[in-house]
């Protein structure tokens, strides 16, 4: 007991897939299952502004993760979140729909009169009906899966000043690399190396 804290060497960061967020973290939270590692804090409906999340939510790269209760009106001290676009289904590796992802943008100011910011929230929720069908066996008959109550939020600030790499983990070629790479095809234009 009590041996569950870990420290990872440099280079490891919290960088979950959508599926992991849903299946590993949110599903367990909603089912009141022990979640290990229990790294994502529950901020309930505290009215934090997005820039206040640092130190309160789990940080992975430039993104912050926390659990929250589901609410139609997400309002913070200085503004509000407004949903945009269409919700996206989250599909697991084996093709099952496990949850949904909603996009929200943070506005500073009074509701409906706010100023749009670069803060984005992705709000993950479990599938409305699908979540209990496949995974929960009969043995869990008594487990009431409160899938509607909890959401998992990922918040980040869209960065305008960066180029296409938000956190430069280098697994994408930069625009220039692409240019250079393509140049290789143009009859081997040789660059002095």
């Amino acid at each position: 007991m009590g041996d569950d804290s870990i420290k990872l060497p440099p280079g490891f960061r919290f960088s979950p897939t959508d599926e992991e967020l849903i299946v590993h973290f949110l599903y367990r939270k909603a089912s009141v299952l022990p979640c290990h590692p229990d790294v994502i804090p529950d901020l309930d409906l505290y009215p934090y502004d997005p820039w206040e999340l640092n130190g309160k939510a789990l940080q992975g790269g430039n993104q912050w993760y926390f659990f929250s209760r589901r609410t139609p009106n997400r309002v913070s001290a200085n503004g509000y979140w407004k949903s945009v676009g269409v919700d996206e289904p989250i599909v697991s590796n084996d093709g099952k729909k496990v949850g949904m992802k909603k996009y929200l943008v943070f506005y500073i100011g009074e509701t409906s009169a706010g100023i749009k910011t670069n803060w984005i929230m992705q709000e993950y929720r479990l599938s409305d009906c699908g979540s209990s069908s496949s995974r929960s066996s009969k043995r869990r008959g008594t487990t009431k899966l409160d899938s509607s109550k909890w959401v998992l939020c990922r918040v980040y600030e869209r960065n305008n000043s960066d180029d296409d790499d938000n956190d430069d983990d280098g697994t994408e070629l930069s625009c220039l690399d692409e240019v250079f790479l393509s140049l290789d095809d143009l009859d081997e234009i040789s660059l002095p190396n």
Binding site: D3, S5, K7, P9, P34, D38, V39
Partner: peptide, 25 residues
């Protein structure tokens, strides 16, 4: 680093400690 170290971390340890399991569970 003390990865999965058997001993619980000192309380003031700031280096990405992963919280322990909820003890009840």
């Amino acid at each position: 680093m003390a990865f999965s170290s058997p001993a619980p971390p000192p309380p003031d340890d700031q280096d990405l400690p992963l919280p322990q399991l909820r003890s009840s569970n």
